[in-house]
């Protein structure tokens, strides 16, 4: 279970395992960069970059989940995301949260 709230609705947090995070830096190939450059002449959604960031975020989350599983946690609460551009056409995605053990509340 992954939530961005401090508690999990319908569940009790029985143990806090610690901070977990995952990051990734990804880029699209040059063709997509050129496509985005052309699209930006008129403005509007840059689909190639939207895809890139959504894929990267999924990857970063996957790594965060892997870290949580390594701690024997079954949920991550208070998840936050950050994005930063580190070079033209490349972005770093970072996801972090607190790994916990939760059980359905009675």
């Amino acid at each position: 279970m992954i939530v961005n709230t401090e508690t999990i609705p319908g569940h009790d947090i029985v143990e806090t395992k610690g901070l977990v995070s995952g990051n990734t830096i990804r880029a699209k190939h040059l063709g997509r960069d050129i496509g985005a450059g052309l699209k930006n002449l008129v403005g509007g959604e840059l689909t190639g970059y939207t895809e890139l960031l959504n894929e990267s975020r999924a990857e970063a989350m996957q790594r965060m989940v892997g870290a949580a599983q390594g701690m024997n946690a079954n949920a991550i609460v208070n998840v936050r995301f950050t994005t930063s551009a580190i070079a033209g056409g490349a972005a770093e995605l970072y996801a972090y949260g607190t790994a916990v053990v939760a059980t359905p509340s009675a």
């Binding site: 992954i2 319908g10 569940h11 008129v42 403005g43 939207t50 959504n54 359905p104």
Partner: peptide
């Protein structure tokens, strides 16, 4: 009460135009 939870996210990259 008793509910199921799931994190959802979506992002959009939007260009301003020249």
């Amino acid at each position: 009460g008793r509910v199921d939870v799931e994190l959802l996210s979506s992002s959009v990259v939007i260009g301003t135009g020249y």
